[in-house]
């Protein structure tokens, strides 16, 4: 095969991806950027300015929302990691054969229904007249109905629940690749459970931990339904704010600026996370 044919094959193979990248990622973002530096001065008249970005910094409500969203997302990521790690360890290292695949499948099960349905499921359980509140009353543990919805703890729980799978999968795959004999060697040489976890298991699974954390953080930061529905009147989520600007306020300019601010904040946090953990994006993506 001559080189021009090889090139043609390469172009044909890459074209769906390039089309996708160009049409659905790059062009919309360029468009969004120009939208974000446009200021409406009168109906149907616009000027180029940074007013939309200035608006974000002068109105405490907006940056409070972004700060809160970022903080809650980081917290959700850390908690998801803490909960998912033992689960992944159990699946990858303690189980064999059929039980292993069944348990893995169980982690997948909630994702057979859409996020909306899952969230409504939580609402049915947690609302004041919901299953949990009524059961507790029936058992005589509480006197009156309790509202479990519409607070930050519930939002956090919903976010963790939604994110679990995306943390468990990369963790299971990196833990699977950890040779059992390394753990046994650790014991054999006098290591305790804690020191083996710290010196062998965690360093080995670092790429999985980082890629899981990146995915969960991005998903949580970009989540819309869970914080809005479970948070109710107390929900302040930045994507909700973007949605509001675009859909109910018709303020696409400010919405676009918010999109870019969210992109910058999320990229910065991921970059910081990689720096602090001493990983690179390439090593993380390649290994898990």
């Amino acid at each position: 095969m001559n080189s021009s044919q090889t090139r043609l094959t390469l172009i044909l193979l890459l074209s769906p991806f390039l089309l996708w990248l160009g049409l659905l990622v790059i062009i919309p973002h360029i468009d969004m950027f120009f939208l974000s530096i446009r200021e409406k001065v009168a109906p149907r008249t616009y000027e180029t300015s940074l007013a939309n970005y200035a608006e974000f910094f002068t109105e405490p409500f907006y940056w409070n929302t972004l700060a809160r969203t970022a903080f809650m997302s980081i917290l959700a990521t850390v908690l998801t990691l803490i909960i998912a790690f033992p689960v992944a360890y159990y699946i990858a290292k303690m189980l064999r054969g059929k039980t292993k695949s069944i348990l893995f499948l169980l982690c997948l099960l909630p994702f057979w229904v859409s996020e909306l349905v899952r969230t409504f499921g939580w609402m049915i359980l947690l609302r004041e007249t919901g299953v949990i509140s009524s059961s507790l009353q029936w058992l005589g543990l509480i006197d009156g109905p309790i509202e479990f919805l519409y607070n930050d703890v519930t939002v956090m729980m919903g976010l963790i629940y939604t994110s679990m799978l995306f943390m468990v999968v990369p963790l299971v795959s990196t833990l699977d690749s950890l040779d059992d004999s390394l753990i046994e060697a650790g014991y054999d040489l006098g290591g305790s459970k804690l020191s083996i976890l710290k010196e062998i298991v965690i360093p080995h699974s670092m790429p999985g931990i980082i890629s899981g954390c990146i995915v969960v953080f991005m998903l949580t930061l970009g989540n819309y339904l869970t914080p809005i529905l479970l948070g109710g009147k107390s929900s302040m989520w930045f994507t909700g704010q973007i949605y509001t600007q675009f859909i109910t306020r018709f303020n696409w300019e400010l919405g676009a600026a918010f999109c870019f601010l969210l992109l910058i904040v999320s990229s910065t946090i991921v970059w910081l996370g990689l720096k602090l953990s001493g990983q690179t994006l390439a090593s993380t993506v390649a290994k898990s």
Binding site: S181, S192, H204
Partner: peptide, 30 residues
């Protein structure tokens, strides 16, 4: 981890996340 025996594993099980010196020092550190 308390027995006075040590095992050289079939595939050796050297810790890839540590240097050679850290591998050898592992037991003493513990």
């Amino acid at each position: 981890n308390k027995r006075p025996v040590n095992l050289v594993f079939q595939h050796l099980a050297l810790f890839p996340m540590m240097s050679v010196a850290e591998n050898i020092a592992y037991g003493l550190r513990r």
